Amino acid sequence: RQGFVPAAYVKKLDSGTGKELVLALYDYQEKSPREVTMKKGDILTLLNSTNKDWWKVEVN
């Protein structure tokens, strides 16, 4: 499932696989259909980080 999360809630990881991955630093509950819920410690695939406030991710 793809959607947006606050950029301040995730940290980029060095995956070494060519995929950009991020680590969820905090729990986040989606507040609109365009967002996704994540739990602290989740590893997500980063799809787009051009917006400084909201990053598009895919929940694996």
Rank of each mutant, 00 (worst) to 15 (best):
G41K: 02
D53K: 14
S49L: 04
E58A: 11
A24H: 00
Y28K: 00
T17F: 13
V59C: 09
K56F: 15
Y26I: 10
T45M: 11
M38L: 09
Y28A: 01
T50V: 10
N48C: 10
Y9G: 06
V36Q: 03
L44S: 02
D27A: 07
L46K: 01
A7T: 06
T37W: 04
N48Y: 06
K11T: 13
D27F: 04
G3Q: 02
R1Y: 07
K19R: 14
L46E: 00
M38H: 02
E20G: 11
V36M: 11
K56Q: 12
K31A: 10
N48Q: 10
S15W: 15
A24S: 05
L23E: 14
K31F: 05
Q29I: 14
E58N: 04
K19N: 11
V10Y: 01
N60S: 13
K56E: 14
N48D: 15
L23I: 15
D14E: 14
S49F: 07
I43R: 05
S15C: 14
A24R: 00
S15Q: 10
E20N: 15
L25Q: 05
G16S: 14
K40I: 06
D14I: 12
K19Y: 11
G18E: 13
D14R: 11
G3V: 04
S49H: 09
T37Y: 04
E58Y: 05
D53G: 08
E30Y: 04
L21Y: 13
P6Y: 04
R34H: 13
L44G: 05
N60W: 13
K11P: 00
R1C: 09
D42S: 06
A24L: 02
N60K: 13
K19G: 09
L25E: 04
V57P: 00
K11N: 06
E30N: 08
V59P: 07
D53A: 12
V36I: 14
L23Q: 13
Y28D: 00
L47Q: 03
Q29D: 14
V22W: 08
Q29K: 12
V5Y: 00
V57H: 00
Y28W: 10
W54D: 02
I43N: 03
A24W: 01
P33K: 09
L46R: 00
G41I: 01
L44Y: 11
Y26H: 12
G16R: 07
V36S: 02
D14T: 13
I43V: 12
S49Y: 08
W55E: 01
Y9R: 05
K39M: 09
L47V: 11
V36T: 06
D27E: 05
T37G: 10
E35W: 03
G3P: 00
D42Y: 05
P33G: 09
S15I: 12
G18W: 08
V57F: 01
E20Q: 15
K56T: 07
K56S: 07
V36N: 02
L44C: 08
T17E: 14
K52V: 11
L25K: 06
S15V: 14
W54S: 03
K19C: 11
T45H: 10
S32V: 04
R1I: 09
S32R: 10
G16K: 09
P33L: 09
G16I: 13
N51I: 05
G41C: 07
D42M: 11
K11M: 15
D53I: 15
V59H: 15
Q2F: 07
K31T: 14
E35K: 05
P33I: 10
D53P: 02
K40M: 08
A24I: 03
V57W: 00
G18F: 08
L25T: 05
L23V: 15
Q29W: 11
T50L: 09
S15F: 11
K40Q: 10
K39F: 10
A24F: 01
L46D: 00
Y28R: 02
V59Q: 14
R34Q: 12
Q2N: 08
K31H: 09
K52H: 11
S15A: 11
L47K: 05
V36K: 02
G16D: 15
L44A: 07
E35Y: 05
G41H: 04
K39R: 14
E30M: 12
F4I: 07
K31C: 10
Q29G: 07
P6W: 04
K12W: 07
L13V: 11
W54T: 02
G41M: 03
D14G: 15
D14K: 13
Y28S: 01
T45I: 15
W55R: 00
I43C: 05
D27I: 02
D27P: 06
F4H: 05
E35S: 07
T50Y: 09
I43F: 05
P33R: 06
V10I: 06
D14Y: 14
Y9K: 07
K52G: 08
T17D: 14
S32D: 10
K11I: 15
K40V: 07
L25C: 07
D53Y: 15
L13Y: 10
T17M: 13
S15D: 12
S32E: 08
K11S: 10
V22M: 04
V10N: 00
A7L: 02
Q29T: 15
D53Q: 13
T50G: 09
K31N: 10
E30L: 07
P33D: 12
L47S: 02
Y26P: 00
V10H: 01
V36W: 06
D27V: 03
